[in-house]
Design a protein around this nucleic acid. Structure first.
Length: 924
RNA sequence: GCCCGGGUGGUGAAAUUGGUAGACACGCAAGACUUAAAAUCUUGUUCGCUGUAAAGCGAGUGCGGGUUCAAUUCCCGCCCCGGGCACCA
């Protein structure tokens, strides 16, 4: 009986579907385990072999946990709102709703072939009104909340109104406007429009005017994490800074909690580092420098700077303020006015990208000075684009001997440099050390810089001219998009006041719209639908929410997907709790994961869920690279030269479809038929064969190196495919795809099959009990496989299975009592074949619910061990020695060995090292 | 520039990190079965040297040092590859 995987896999996939084998109930009587994959954006390209890597790993782990008796939640869904569907609609005239559904159907059919254990009854689609109703509802919670800094948590905006009525905002400084101060009386006498304006500056989801990343090509605003090196993450289009009215999430208020929460979760160090760096916490001081009165027209008396190095205050040779700084007009002296205006014009003419690409040293002197508070020295105030308006106070004190940028600036503009670190400064480059003893530094002289930081801070605070200040690099997240294919905001504007709609009015459905051209004034396409926009005497918000809105909370919806009363019942979220294992790529390190963590904290603060970190453990699967094949065309000809001979010609390399290449050998006839351009190609071969070049790179259509999992499953079966993806290497590591290697795994599966069935004789598995040697092999394997599975070392677990099958085959073991246990252990990896054999050997019920075998240690007890015996660390012989042997026993045994005496040359050894259960080393 | 990963045979990798380097596979080579092929099985396969062979010796985990009886693993200094951040004061 042959292993007919196609029929077997089809049979069981249908049976599992029919029996709802993967249906999961919220059953508090059983221990839970929640395994989550980062859900895919259903792109038109479908899946390549790299995508299922993480899904297979999580599937194996889910099945393993289920066999261990856990109630396992392992759902799947689609992040189905987003830009590409909209771009596709514009280019092809197909509505996003339609192309998205089509793509989802394609994804689903690809996923189904691999045999995942998802409970599809729990599927979520972020673009489904039943889902985004609750995304809108959570938005309303964010809109109706503010962050209480003292309690470090979100509270209802109504609580804030109570506070304002009683005491104004003196004890609750405004996160959106540091200078805003008002009393209770002022609050109470203000009109509702004024009050709304103030509240907006506190809300966690707020609308405001600010510098945003505007991408002209995409016609929308982007969040910081969607901009990579000055271009859009999607499409690589240029991005410019623009002042616009936009919706934001006040994620900066959660900076501290987001940092603290990292201590409580099991993410990789690099993932934690990325988030920590993105948040960018720094400790320092804000210092007020008095502006020298005789040099300014200004009424301003002080310039406030932010520094992390107040210890260097005696080394300040100039000040730099950002070109956008408020004080520029008032500080600029009449003599410098023209120069300053010219400079500002120049700065405005430079795009963000130009600034990043060419970091030129530019700047202009304002004509004003301020005074060093400790020695009265006059310090010139400069304006330069290297100081960012959005960070700190938008002004710095420049210490050229200690800061590289300040040093270059001073050198460029010939500003004299004060040395406060003696030998540590060589005059050619700045030295940012903290280890120097300070010189020329007044009361700080002689102190170690690292100690002087707090001494200077104390002094500044004592004199009331400075205070300790913590800053974060992270910015509030832009939350509106000028696009169509996203969640509409549940907001109506009346007289410039944003009115939230009642939760009973949800969902605010996205209206159908055939023409997705932008609306007027950089508004989204929805602005073109006046009958939709006009609502209840006001105008609907026409922006839509960004892609990350729906993905920020989807893990909660899976717990209670059909609930139409709540986003997720408290009972469901209390039962399932945190995601125990979250698997996905590193590309979401600072985007999705931070937003999702913030939303979870807000929902926790408001009492809707009982935990404030969504993901307990995160595993990042590596990327599978494509192994591209290249052909070399002799320039300006139709001749193609084989890789080994290409250096003799001037050639252009061309990617060739990997399916036309066997190893490195090109199918020349196939190549001619591949594209009309190549139909009359001729080849310069090596011994009749055309050899292609190779390169590892991203798996992508344009390199013709995409391998579709459907093809692999068709040829080798899903079980082989699953195990091979795992066998390729550690899940977390990037690795190349090589279809050839799959043969080894396929052979293993067939060999496993042959433990049960013979091609002619049929079933060969017998009721004869297994012998001790076979049990030993099995339990050794079980122990390894279980340990490896538990630590996500799936590649070595597969190797463990191979060793087990090889050894049992050698022993001719066909005992059903043993093999039946083997089947259960293999089920998470290769469920189809195991379920089929389970049925064939007459077991009742599904193997999916069998119980995982337990290691019987009695079979694994060893009495002796093969010890490597080394001479001076170099292994020379292997000796089988009783495990109870003492040092003396071992020494005697070792010295008897001729091989060892040969090395000793008659002399006694200096020492014999014996590490029980490890090794023996003879030192001579 | 800064912060993380990583560098091991022809290839993917293993050694659960002081204790037999290269498990398990791919590929390759030789052989068995077969009219033949597929499939399957057997043997070999880090490199170099000696040897008909059995075997032995030497080198070897990016490079150079160090600690140790013993280093892929720990320490110091460099090189290369991948990822993230990048005028954040």
């Amino acid at each position: 009986m042959e292993y007919g995987f196609s029929a077997i896999e089809k049979k069981w996939q249908e049976a599992w579907k029919k029996n709802k084998a993967y249906k999961v109930n919220n059953d508090p009587s059983k221990p839970k385990y929640y395994v989550l994959d980062m859900f895919p954006y259903p792109s038109g390209a479908g899946l390549h072999v790299g995508h299922p890597l993480g899904y297979i790993a999580s599937d194996i782990f889910s099945r393993y946990k289920r066999l261990k008796g856990f109630n396992v939640l392992h759902p799947m869904g689609y992040d189905s709102f987003g830009l590409p569907a909209e771009q596709y609609a514009i280019e092809h005239g197909i509505a996003p709703a339609i192309s998205t559904d089509r793509n989802i159907d394609n994804f689903r059919s690809q996923l189904d072939k691999i045999g995942f254990c998802y409970d599809w009854d729990r599927e979520v689609r972020t673009s489904n009104p039943n889902y985004y109703k609750w995304t809108q509802w959570i938005f309303l919670q964010l809109f109706d909340s503010w962050f209480d800094r003292k309690a470090q948590k979100a509270r209802s905006i109504n609580d804030l109104i109570v506070i304002f009525k009683a005491e104004g905002n003196t004890n609750t400084p405004c996160p959106g406007d540091k200078k805003l101060v008002f009393s209770a009386a002022e609050w109470n006498s203000g009109d509702s429009s004024k009050q709304s304006e103030i509240l907006m500056k506190y809300r966690l989801a707020f609308c405001g005017v600010g510098e945003v990343n505007w991408c002209e090509a995409l016609g929308t605003v982007l969040a910081n994490d969607e901009v990579i090196n000055g271009v859009s993450e999607r499409g690589g289009h240029p991005v410019v800074k623009k002042k616009l009215r936009q919706w934001y999430l006040r994620i900066t208020e959660y900076a501290e909690r987001l940092l603290a929460g990292l201590q409580t979760v099991d993410f990789s160090d690099s993932m934690k580092d990325m988030q920590t760096n993105w948040i960018g916490k720094s400790f320092g001081a804000e210092i007020d420098f008095e502006i020298a009165a005789e040099n300014t027209l200004s009424s301003a008396s002080h310039l406030k700077v932010y520094t992390t190095r107040p210890d260097t205050i005696f080394g300040v040779d100039f000040m730099v303020i950002a070109p956008e700084h408020d004080l520029i007009t008032t500080l600029t002296s009449p003599e410098q006015k023209k120069a300053v205006e010219e400079y500002l014009e120049y700065v405005n003419s430079r795009s963000e990208r130009e600034r990043m690409a060419e970091k030129k040293i530019t700047g202009v002197f304002s004509g004003a000075y301020c005074k060093n508070p400790f020695n009265g020295v006059l310090i010139p105030i400069w304006i330069s684009e290297y100081v960012l308006a959005g960070y700190g106070t938008g002004a710095i004190m420049a210490v050229p001997c200690g800061d590289e940028r300040d040093f270059k600036f001073a050198q460029y503009f010939s500003i004299p440099i004060t040395n406060i670190i003696g030998q540590f400064f060589n005059g050619n480059e700045a030295n940012p050390t903290k280890e120097a003893r300070l010189e020329n530094s007044g009361f700080l002289d002689g102190l170690l810089m690292s100690d002087a930081i707090s001494v200077s801070l104390d002094k500044l605070e004592e004199l009331g001219i400075g205070k300790r200040q913590t800053n974060y690099k992270m910015r509030d997240a832009a939350f509106s998009r000028q696009r169509y294919w996203g969640e509409p905001f549940p907001i109506v504007w009346k007289n410039d006041i944003a009115i939230p709609l009642s939760s009973t009015a949800l969902p605010i459905e996205l209206p159908e719209l055939s023409d997705l051209k932008p609306g007027p004034d950089a508004q989204g396409p929805l602005a073109n639908l006046p009958e939709w926009v006009s609502y209840d005497g006001g105008a609907r918000e026409v922006n839509t929410m960004p892609g990350y809105a729906g993905s920020s909370w989807y893990f909660l919806r899976y717990m209670d997907p059909q609930n139409d009363k709540e986003f997720c019942s408290r009972a469901a979220s209390d039962y399932w709790g945190q995601v125990d294992l979250y698997i996905g790529g590193t590309e979401h390190a600072v985007g999705h994961l931070l937003y999702s963590r913030m939303w979870t904290k807000v929902l926790f603060d408001l009492g809707h869920i009982g935990f404030d970190e969504p993901y307990k453990r995160l595993v990042n699967q590596g990327k599978i690279g494509g192994d591209s094949r290249l052909v070399y065309r002799v320039r300006n000809s139709k001749q193609f030269v084989s890789a080994g001979l290409k250096d003799n010609y001037e050639t252009d390399e061309i990617h060739v479809d990997v399916s036309l290449v066997d190893g490195f050998v090109l199918d020349m006839e196939g190549f001619k038929k591949w594209k009309p351009d190549f139909s009359d190609a001729t080849f310069i071969t090596e011994e009749g064969e055309y050899k292609c070049g190779a390169r590892l790179e991203k798996m992508s259509k344009r390199y013709f190196n995409v391998v579709n999992p459907d093809d692999i499953v068709e040829k080798y079966g899903a079980d082989t495919f699953r195990m091979y993806e795992m066998f390729l290497g550690p899940v977390e590591q990037d690795k190349p795809w090589d279809t050839k290697g799959i043969e080894g795994v396929h052979r293993f599966i067939r060999k496993f099959w042959r433990l049960f069935f013979d091609a002619e004789k049929g079933l060969v598995a017998t009721q004869t009990p297994a012998d001790a040697a076979s049990w030993k092999i099995f339990y050794k394997m079980l122990k390894k496989v279980e340990e490896d599975t538990a630590r996500f070392s799936f590649n070595t677990a597969v190797s463990g299975f191979m060793i087990g099958v090889n050894e049992l085959t050698d022993l001719n073991c066909h005992s059903i009592d043993l093999l039946k246990k083997f089947l259960i252990v293999l089920t998470p990896y290769a469920p189809h074949i195991c379920e089929e054999i389970w049925q064939q050997i007459g077991e009742v019920g599904s193997i999916l619910d069998a119980s995982y075998p337990v290691v019987d240690e009695t079979y694994l007890v060893e009495t002796s061990k093969e010890y490597p015996v080394a001479v001076n660390g170099k292994t020379r012989i292997i000796l089988n020695i009783d495990l109870n042997a003492t040092q003396a026993d071992v020494e005697a045994l070792v010295l008897k060995e001729p091989m060892i005496s040969k090395w000793l040359e008659g002399k006694p050894p200096k020492k014999i090292i014996f590490v029980k259960n490890k090794m023996i080393n003879v030192v001579i």
